[in-house]
Simulated assay, not measured.
Amino acid sequence: MVADRRTPDAPLFLRLAGEQLRWDLLRELARSDLRVGDLITAVGQPQSLVSYHLRKLRSGGLVSSRRSSADGRDTYYRLDLGRCAELLAGTGQGLHPALDLVPPAPPAEESVRGRVLFLCTGNSSRSQMAEALLRHRAPRVEVMSAGSHPKPLHPNAFAVMRERGIDLSGHRSKHLDEFAGQHFDHVISLCDKVREVCPEFPGHPGLVHWSMPDPSAAGDTAEVGYPAFSRAADELSTRIGFLVQNLAHPRPQETRS
Rank of each mutant, 00 (worst) to 15 (best):
residue 189 S to Y: 02
residue 169 S to H: 15
residue 96 H to W: 11
residue 186 H to D: 04
residue 110 E to H: 13
residue 187 V to E: 03
residue 103 P to Q: 06
residue 98 A to M: 05
residue 135 R to K: 15
residue 192 D to S: 08
residue 148 S to L: 10
residue 137 R to W: 04
residue 127 S to L: 11
residue 151 K to L: 06
residue 82 G to A: 11
residue 193 K to W: 09
residue 79 L to M: 10
residue 91 T to P: 02
residue 192 D to N: 09
residue 105 A to Q: 13
residue 110 E to I: 05
residue 147 G to V: 05
residue 163 E to L: 04
residue 164 R to F: 02
residue 120 C to I: 14
residue 148 S to H: 11
residue 80 D to S: 07
residue 144 M to I: 01
residue 116 V to A: 12
residue 129 M to L: 01
residue 104 P to C: 06
residue 119 L to N: 06
residue 85 A to V: 03
residue 101 L to I: 05
residue 91 T to R: 06
residue 176 L to Y: 06
residue 112 V to H: 04
residue 158 F to Q: 03
residue 173 S to F: 07
residue 184 F to L: 01
residue 158 F to N: 00
residue 123 N to S: 07
residue 185 D to F: 13
residue 92 G to W: 01
residue 146 A to W: 12
residue 172 R to T: 10
residue 129 M to I: 14
residue 150 P to Q: 11
residue 90 G to F: 00
residue 156 N to W: 13
residue 180 A to V: 00
residue 161 M to L: 10
residue 194 V to A: 13
residue 98 A to R: 08
residue 150 P to N: 10
residue 104 P to G: 03
residue 143 V to P: 08
residue 182 Q to G: 03
residue 170 G to W: 12
residue 89 A to N: 00
residue 129 M to Y: 02
residue 126 R to L: 09
residue 153 L to W: 05
residue 122 G to S: 02
residue 156 N to R: 07
residue 167 D to S: 14
residue 72 G to Y: 02
residue 186 H to A: 04
residue 119 L to V: 15
residue 173 S to C: 10
residue 168 L to H: 05
residue 190 L to G: 05
residue 191 C to N: 07
residue 169 S to I: 02
residue 144 M to L: 06
residue 128 Q to I: 09
residue 123 N to I: 03
residue 83 R to H: 10
residue 71 D to F: 14
residue 107 P to H: 09
residue 134 L to K: 02
residue 126 R to M: 09
residue 109 E to S: 14
residue 167 D to C: 13
residue 72 G to T: 08
residue 75 T to V: 10
residue 140 R to S: 03
residue 171 H to A: 13
residue 182 Q to Y: 07
residue 110 E to R: 15
residue 147 G to A: 09
residue 144 M to P: 00
residue 148 S to F: 10
residue 175 H to T: 04
residue 181 G to T: 07
residue 87 L to S: 05
residue 156 N to A: 08
residue 86 E to P: 00
residue 127 S to V: 11
residue 75 T to Y: 04
residue 114 G to D: 07
residue 85 A to C: 01
residue 163 E to Q: 13
residue 83 R to E: 07
residue 113 R to N: 02
residue 159 A to R: 15
residue 157 A to E: 08
residue 132 A to G: 09
residue 173 S to L: 06
residue 156 N to D: 11
residue 72 G to A: 12
residue 143 V to F: 14
residue 101 L to W: 03
residue 186 H to Y: 02
residue 146 A to P: 05
residue 145 S to A: 13
residue 154 H to T: 07
residue 159 A to F: 00
residue 75 T to C: 01
